[in-house]
Write a protein that binds this DNA or RNA. Structure first.
Lengths: 104, 104
DNA sequence: CGGCCACCTTACCTTCAGGTAAGTACCCTA
DNA sequence: TAGGGTACTTACCTGAAGGTAAGGTGGCCG
């Protein structure tokens, strides 16, 4: 495994997490919570609708988020994490622990 | 710990890793290796001098990289990881393992 | 019939990370 | 004194991420 290929692997992971709002959304959905579009808007007031849907769609195609449409009137769409998305939690914990171990 | 504060913690970590070249540099320095400026240029041909020095400086102020100046002619400057920088390795491994566990 | 709710979509603009290219400082060798 | 190696520095430019604001659909309710 060359330095470049290893870096590429990690970069693929980072690409899923970077984006101004992905992590905020992620942490709102951790724990198996299901939230509606408007719930997320309320939970993250600073985000625009465009950004919210954009980041959700990207996380959906990355397989982190799943989208559950209830065919009702008025429309109801719920967002939650996939099993794989949930399983990211320990990995993020490891990062936080490393950051907490910083000297100085 | 609110979703936003947890996200902020992870974002701080990501800010240290994001940047087009940080990870590539990082993986070149893993294992206690010491490389000179020109070594890194040769190891990463696609990077410009400006970007190389910029990313090195940022990682230095983040406490990940250390800079060792040898007062010689011609000049000699070596770059290596701090202990804390080295200790990031397992955390990145966790991320890679998570990515490898992706279904589909 | 008109307005409202929920969930998007579109057009347009701004900002900044990163790229290119050239210049600087130092001293040694030929 | 001219050239070269090493380690940067500076000025300028570009593309894409993200922001703002407005429009669109579909049905129910008063």
């Amino acid at each position: 495994m060359t330095p470049s290929s290893a870096a590429a692997g990690v970069e693929n992971v980072l690409r899923m997490l970077e984006g101004r709002w992905k992590l905020v959304i992620l942490f709102h959905l951790f724990g198996g919570k299901l939230l509606r579009f408007s719930d997320l808007e309320r939970a993250i007031p600073a985000i625009s609708q465009k950004m919210l849907i954009q980041q959700l769609r990207q996380m959906e195609t990355d397989g982190i988020v799943r989208r559950i449409v209830h065919h009702q009137v008025p429309p109801k769409v719920e967002y939650g994490l996939t099993d794989w998305g949930q399983s990211m939690c320990p990995a993020l914990d490891t990062l936080l622990k490393w950051a907490a171990a910083k000297p100085d």
